[in-house]
Amino acid sequence: MIEHIFVFVFLFISILIYFKIADKYNIIDKPNHRSAHSQITLRGGGIIFPIAFIIFSLFNFNESVHEYWSFGLGLLAICFISFLDDIRTLSNRIRLSIHFISVVLLLYFTDTFSLMPFWAWPIFFIMIIGTLNAYNFMDGINGMTGIYSLITLVSFLYINKEIVSFAEDDFIIYPILASLVFLFFNFRKKAKCFAGDVGSMGIGFWVIGLITLLIMKTQDYKYILLLSTYGMEVVLTIIERILLKENIFEAHRRHLYQLFANEKKVSHLLISTTYAVVQLIVNVFLIYSKLPVAAVVLIIFIPIGGIYLTLKYSLKKKYSL
């Protein structure tokens, strides 16, 4: 407990130091046509997540050298390239190359290459890349990335302690502490900072690492649903954009949370909290349900998907979108 208090304080001080650096070098987020905010805000507050891993490595040096080196390289690489992209736009070739290397390192770390047949490797690779992008797509309003990640990480910690041990507790607790520090500055009506790509990709990579470890340990794919709210939002939005013959790689404002924030002017904090609560309800049901995976998927996706589509249709009709 004393160690965790020290880490929390150190992370808090670290992000304050970063604010000074970001302010000096003008690392800011300027509102554009798809932004849900209207004020210039410091960008890159999500740098707290790779810092949290560095601290974890120092406190667990022997284990980090032998067990976490591949995860650490992957995390730091994807965070580094994402931070550079926050400062200046990089070419897709450079970003995708680093993403590919990081995902390969993540699959190595989680023993996916040895525990899964060869034909399953591309499936996991596509799922991880898709989830990373989902985390990036959903990082658009105050509090969303932080509180959603916090709910997911706390669920991991409960599963690890009460259901099945699949990782060291500290490997889950450290990103929880980083999320709490980040939320202190981001879960506000006027946020002090935004996560930036370094934050959304960094915490996304960490969460994906944990969920992959859990799946490899249990061989139970139902745990993918621990990210089902993000997954459903992104998949349905992509399908909608394909049907409208839009370029799915271009920036847009078609996510349900964007419609609520931009058109209906609902509080960012209320929207973020709602998404997190929905995921928490799903997680509780998922953890305690004894039903087959297919039944769990249907029970979760049919009602939530129906509500999602109804809300989106009514908003689009009202605002002629």
Rank of each mutant, 00 (worst) to 15 (best):
F194C: 14
K190F: 12
A195D: 08
I208C: 05
T131K: 00
E250S: 11
S70F: 13
L16S: 10
L311D: 01
E63V: 02
G202W: 03
L107C: 15
N26C: 10
K222Y: 08
L73E: 04
D139F: 04
L259Q: 15
P117F: 07
F249V: 07
F80Y: 05
S82E: 03
C79W: 07
C79T: 03
K20W: 09
E246V: 02
I151C: 13
Y313H: 15
L42R: 15
L311A: 13
Q258E: 15
V297D: 10
T89D: 15
F182K: 11
Y68W: 10
R93V: 06
S272Q: 12
A120E: 14
A294T: 04
V198H: 00
T145W: 14
D169K: 00
V181D: 09
I27W: 05
Y68A: 02
R188E: 04
L269T: 07
L309V: 14
G204K: 01
A276H: 14
L107W: 07
T229W: 15
F260E: 08
N142V: 01
F194D: 08
L180C: 07
H37K: 11
Y313A: 13
M116D: 05
D169V: 06
G146L: 03
F194I: 09
I211H: 06
F12Y: 14
K317F: 07
T110D: 09
L150Y: 05
S57G: 10
C193H: 07
M201A: 01
I55D: 07
Y257W: 02
C193P: 06
I208L: 09
H252L: 08
K24Q: 09
F59E: 00
L256V: 11
V103S: 05
G74L: 03
I307P: 09
K20C: 00
L225W: 14
E67A: 02
M201Q: 02
M232Y: 13
F125I: 03
V65L: 14
L96F: 15
I78R: 01
D170P: 02
H37G: 12
